[in-house]
């Protein structure tokens, strides 16, 4: 089992967000969770990513229960890509030692290579404060390249396709397809339709998970 969740509950203070969530996702399976804004989708994703500690219940990702270990098993792509005020290369490697080949592969898969080749400083181009020197689509693809380079077995997508417009969506979708190929995927979104395909779809409502 790639993701195993049993009786997971979570609250912010007195406000109960998730109630007795049970979820099983097999290796290579992709699922989608939909729900209205504020229903707890992002919280669930943060718990699955090991960013939050579960208050009640069990979360197991690739056999790991410790949040720090879980984080090693997952890659996350968010709606608003967060970039470091550093070079494209540093944004992909996150400061970790990585071979040029791995970086190039990640850039190819994320549809970044042609754009990078056109830049005077290439992969060492500075992306600016909050990624201010690159477009939204380019920033999103850098974030995807980062996730590809990490090569984690589980991919979590947080509204990753919600803000795409016509011109950039094709490149981003292609990049996301490269990222998710052969991986366990959990995608959360407030929109019922999506540009990608999934094995199962769930609905999060009142803190509980239902089959959609």
């Amino acid at each position: 089992m790639s993701i195993y969740v049993e009786n997971l509950s979570f609250a912010y203070g007195d406000k109960q967000i998730l109630r007795e969530i049970n979820l099983n996702v097999k290796n290579g399976e992709s699922i989608r969770i939909i729900g209205v804004s504020g229903c707890g989708k992002s919280t669930l994703l943060k718990l699955l990513a090991g960013l939050y500690k579960a208050q009640d219940g069990i979360i197991e990702v690739q056999g790991e229960r410790n949040p720090e270990q879980i984080r090693r098993q997952v890659s996350v792509v968010m709606q608003n890509p967060m970039l470091f005020p550093a070079s494209i290369k540093d944004n992909i490697t996150c400061g970790h030692p990585m071979s040029n080949e791995t970086i190039k592969r990640a850039c190819d898969a994320a549809q970044l290579s042609d754009w990078i080749a056109s830049l005077p400083d290439g992969i060492d181009t500075y992306v600016g404060e909050r990624g201010g020197k690159v477009s939204g689509g380019q920033a999103q693809r850098i974030a995807i390249a980062r996730a590809i380079a990490k090569d984690a077995p589980v991919v979590l997508l947080d509204e990753a396709t919600s803000a795409l417009d016509g011109d950039t969506s094709k490149a981003v979708i292609a990049a996301l397809e490269s990222l998710t190929k052969g991986k366990t995927v959990v995608s959360v979104s407030h929109r019922p339709d999506d540009l990608m395909e999934y094995n199962r779809i769930y609905r999060l409502e009142g803190g509980r998970l239902f089959n959609a």
Partner: peptide
């Protein structure tokens, strides 16, 4: 979040 997820 990226700091934690990518150990950066």
């Amino acid at each position: 979040p990226i700091l934690r997820l990518f150990d950066a």
